[in-house]
Each structure stands twice: as structure tokens, then as C-alpha cells.
């Protein structure tokens, strides 16, 4: 089943998501990238109803790009998160709401701080030091609570993430096999190998 994790550290945010695309009990593929780069300093991991997720992620991606082209500056992570939350909240009150859960990680180039936002399909948004969606969150959150350090280096942060993934692999019946991991910091967005 779908799992996504994210955690902040000293000047960076790590975002990880599983890569399985499943329908019913069947795995259709295992190399699906469920983390979108919305701007040079913004990452979004999405999970939920297949189809809704991709549609909504592309809608967000295009709108954030449009803001960047129209105006002089890119949206800051907090502003982007607020806009996305609002879109979800409006969608929830429409005839056919998107059921998409998000982890939004970004690096604010104006204040030089990393930011992470946990957003769900009901339009709940909280700024968090670490977060997770899916069944994996039941195992990962307690580990992150114990091991997360906002001053950790990238290596230490990745080690904490590895603990979460290993624990989920060990305990969860329907654990995903593969993850994609991306990092955003002052240099922008990049993919890393775990």
C-alpha cells in the first residue's frame, strides 16, 4: 500500500514515496515517480485515489509555474502550501472532490529555511518537522518522533529515513518494495539513492 515520508533537517527537506502503482490487489508497475518538482525549490509527494493524484498534481504544477511566469518571483513554500490547501478545500466542497494526500517540502530562498507541510484530502494543513501518509505512517511516526533532529546533516537525515523504511518493510504486511527519495535545499531539487 502507498507510503510517503518526509523530514526536515539543517537546511534541507527529504521527501520519499513508494513507487508502486496498484489496482485492487495487483501491482501494475513498480517505478512510478510520485514526487513532483513544482518549482526549483519545491517538492510535492502525492498519494490517494489513482488518477485524482496525477490530475491534481499536474493542476498544481501548472498553476505554480504560471504564477512564476506572470509575477516576478516564485511562490514561497508557505504561500504555495496555502494555495494548494485552498484548492483542496474548494474541491472538497464540489460535486466530485479530489481525494489526494500531500507532503510538500520546500526551501525558502527569501528566509533561507526549509519548510515541510502535511496536507490531506480534507484540506487539513500543518507545518511539521516530519510527516508521513499511508499505512507506513503508523510505524514511521513513532520512529521519527524518537530519531528526528532538526539540526541533523543530510547523511543523518537519510539514515533516519532508512530506519523508517526498514521498519515498514519488517512489520507491514503490504509493505512497498521500492522508494524514490528526493531532497530540496539551497541548491534546489535532486534525487538521491538511499
Amino acid at each position: 500500500m502507498e507510503c510517503s515520508f518526509a523530514l526536515t533537517g539543517k537546511g534541507y527537506v527529504i521527501v520519499a514515496a513508494d513507487t508502486t502503482a496498484a489496482r485492487s490487489i495487483v501491482k501494475m508497475k513498480t517505478d512510478e515517480d510520485k514526487i513532483k518538482s513544482l518549482s526549483p525549490h519545491l517538492l510535492m509527494a502525492y498519494s490517494g485515489e489513482p488518477g485524482d493524484t496525477v490530475q491534481f498534481a499536474e493542476y498544481v504544477e501548472r498553476n505554480i509555474r504560471l504564477y512564476q511566469i506572470r509575477n516576478i518571483y516564485a511562490l514561497r513554500p508557505s504561500a504555495a502550501a496555502s494555495w494548494i490547501r485552498r484548492s483542496l478545500a474548494e474541491s472538497l466542497r464540489s460535486r466530485k472532490p479530489y481525494s489526494v494526500n500531500l507532503l510538500l517540502g520546500g526551501y525558502d530562498t527569501a528566509s533561507h529555511e526549509p519548510h515541510l507541510y502535511w496536507i490531506d484530502y480534507l484540506g487539513t494543513m500543518t507545518s511539521v518537522p516530519f510527516g508521513a501518509h499511508g499505512y507506513g505512517s503508523y510505524f514511521a511516526l513513532s520512529l521519527l518522533d524518537r530519531y528526528h533532529d532538526p539540526e541533523a546533516t543530510l547523511e543523518e537525515g537519510l539514515a533516519t529515513l532508512k530506519r523508517c523504511i526498514d521498519e515498514v518493510a519488517k512489520r507491514l504486511v503490504v509493505a512497498p518494495g521500492k522508494y524514490i527519495v528526493k531532497v530540496v535545499d539551497k541548491d534546489g531539487v535532486r534525487e538521491v539513492e538511499l
Partner: peptide, 15 residues
Amino acid sequence: LLNYNEDIPVELLAQ
């Protein structure tokens, strides 16, 4: 403020 939960950037307001 409603859309982005931040004060409008000055140049944007001028625009």
C-alpha cells in the same frame, strides 16, 4: 492574503 496566506509582495501590488 486569502489565497496565499502571506502579505502581498510590494511590486505585485504596484503591478
